[in-house]
Design a protein around this nucleic acid. Structure first.
Lengths: 380, 380
DNA sequence: CAACTGAAGGAAAACGGTTGCCTCCCTCGG
DNA sequence: CCGAGGGAGGCAACCGTTTTCCTTCAGTTG
């Protein structure tokens, strides 16, 4: 708004202190030379990388004010003349000053960092969650420590200790699967949000995809299209995802007065060979089967390949729905797959939001289920 | 100005088998803050959140020594009686003391953190690099800030500022492709290592996969198996990867006195439809073709599907080699693919090692190419 | 001219560690 | 009895900020 017409300014600033200070002086090593201790003490500097970070003292000197005043000027605190604020701001700009976040944290008690911990493995499912969380946190000026445990308890312990030392303000624990998991032992006293794999304790905060709703929508879609003999091929029976989706499958069928084609759900693996194999089972058990809901896009793709080879047309003869919306499968499939998207980035974002609330002192315990979205393509 | 916020579905790295994670006891410290000092020391505590982190002063008080002595005891410095050291150690253990890493950094001038910056997008290729780097750095007690730019210059700038404020000791810049990239504007004065996408400046430190060697090995493998009419299907001609692999393909053939089957390399897309389509081209142009080297596993898989549908047997009639060793493609392919692995985790690890060296003052500028490994399965 | 009032900005105490230097105090040799 | 020497541990400075209080000074009032 008001620009004091200080065009010639710089040289005139600071009476003694700032005299002769130029940008190069500061960026090289001049600014710190006043301290003899630095020369002989630690700060070893063998490789020539000049560590001469500019501090607020440099800014203050160049602006000809005290450190405290410089701080106030930069943070819009205290009572200062507008002209002074501008002078400090200009000095900071010229020196490329960035406040040392660690020093501020020391004082404020908050580090504005959080940890992102994977319990088993960063993979296809946890990565989008991590990235969604990272995005939401970054927007809030919070930086993120990435900790990949690779499913190793030693690594997990190592990372938790490191995070405690770094005084993170919170922690997001992301799983690869949706099976509920026992809570982390309360080791660092900061809020924790479990993403993807919810904590078994309702006292914790968790976010997970609503797989039931996703599966239900998929099956309803098939029924709405007039399919009446719908089969379900899915992953291992021990996985929570398999069970949740299978339950919803049965419920949605029952809702319409239908029975699973072939009599029961086929549990197996998440991969293509199982999809190929299971399709043959089904066509044998129920030749009139007109739709297959698959627990994963990989299974669905295997099924599609097998159906094509058996001379069945998709979707004309048999409709096919997958799960995951993993583009490399669902779009490469022939025909492109109708499938359920768990919106994992949103999941990560939601986890971040809940964590921020908790850090702000408004925790909302319990598990929250986020909606899945049916993506309609050509297979159903 | 316009932010292409299109988050299209994840195209991610496949997952391997995960080991079971056993939850172990992470806290041996039952005690926190039962120390009288914390109570009377003025520790203002507005608004509930009890910030009673245990500090070295608490440890010192409990052990009955001064703060300086406590520090020496815990760090094995100075001259102290063994009994004193033990007493301090015991006090620290009982209180669950973890030194505040930010406070130490302030003094040491090193933060023991590095930034991991993606320039375009975290995906199938950059993720293993990031994780490899994270692993190597974590072992060196260095924590990692994850910064995903999503290919957005605004986000990149934002992250670089944040990293500067956090005083990272170094930076790893990971790309999604291997096309050389202009160096980052020297904006924070710490060592930078470019991984995957090398910097165009030889003054910078870069690590990249030796795609030429990988492609050469693949082609030599085909030739050694007696194949003489070898075609090459690969990605877009504008991609560095396509060019490097195609060059090596031509060289390896020439070495053996052979010509590319069909006369020239087929540039197209990295995906399956292109693989399917290109195979038909090739068989038309050179019906006696007996091997195809594909620039990616996706292309190879498309090629395999197409060949099967055309009645050609792999590898009997036509041998097939892919590139990337992307397990979800290479093992689901029928038959399983012989392919080139770029060893991206190793790449990340190597980047981390070079960064650590540079931080230690021993930078080794230039681009280093890491070997690729031919993985032999059934298709060639 | 003295006292009062704000405005502007300086001095110093935190924050939580580390470390160089100093001071005790004990032992030993002369 | 005196001084040297060394072991053990305390003191205080320091890292880079923020924030609270204090000082200074100009302007105003009686």
């Amino acid at each position: 708004m008001c620009h004091p017409q200080e065009r010639n300014g710089p040289r005139l600033w600071g009476e003694g202190a700032g005299k002769g200070l130029s940008e190069t002086d500061l960026t090289e090593s001049g600014a710190r030379g006043r301290d003899a201790r630095a020369a002989d003490a630690g700060r070893r500097d063998p490789g020539g990388a000049r560590r001469a970070r500019v501090t607020i003292a440099d800014v203050a000197a160049l602006a000809g004010v005290s450190v405290g005043t410089a701080s106030k000027a930069l943070n819009n605190r205290g009572k200062l003349r507008e002209e002074t604020r501008a002078r400090v701001a200009e000095a900071a700009r010229r020196l490329g000053f960035r406040p040392n976040e660690m020093a501020r944290s020391l004082l404020s008690g908050r580090s504005f960092t959080v940890g992102l911990l994977t319990t088993d493995h960063v993979g296809r499912f946890s990565l989008p969650v991590l990235l969604g969380a990272e995005d939401a946190l970054g927007a809030g000026e919070i930086s993120v420590f990435l900790c990949d445990t690779r499913g190793d308890a030693i690594r997990e312990r190592h990372h938790l200790k490191a995070l405690a030392s770094r005084r993170v303000d919170g922690l997001i624990v992301a799983g690869r699967r949706t099976d509920p998991r026992p809570p982390l032992r309360q080791f660092l006293d900061v809020p924790v949000v479990y993403a993807m794999a919810p904590s078994t304790s309702e006292d914790d905060m968790s976010v997970a995809p609503d797989e039931r709703q996703g599966a239900r929508d998929a099956v309803r879609h098939l029924i709405a299209a007039g399919r009446t003999r719908v089969a379900h091929i899915t992953g291992p029976a021990r996985h929570h995802s398999s069970q949740a989706r299978a339950d919803a499958f049965r419920e949605a069928l029952a809702e319409a007065g239908l029975e699973p084609a072939g009599g029961h759900v086929l549990f197996g693996e998440w991969n293509e060979p199982w999809g190929r194999q299971a399709v043959q089972h089904i066509l044998h058990a129920e030749p009139r089967c007109d739709a297959v809901f698959c627990g994963s896009d990989q299974i669905a793709r295997g099924a599609a390949d097998s159906l094509r080879e058996l001379g069945k047309r998709v979707p004309e003869d048999i409709a096919l729905v997958g799960f995951d919306n993993w583009d490399v499968m669902s779009t490469a499939c022939r025909p492109p797959l109708t499938t359920v998207d768990m919106e994992l980035s949103e999941l990560g974002r939601a986890a971040a939001v809940r964590l921020l609330e908790a850090i702000d002192g408004q925790p909302r315990p319990g598990t929250r289920y986020l909606p899945c979205r049916l993506v309609i393509r050509d297979s159903a």
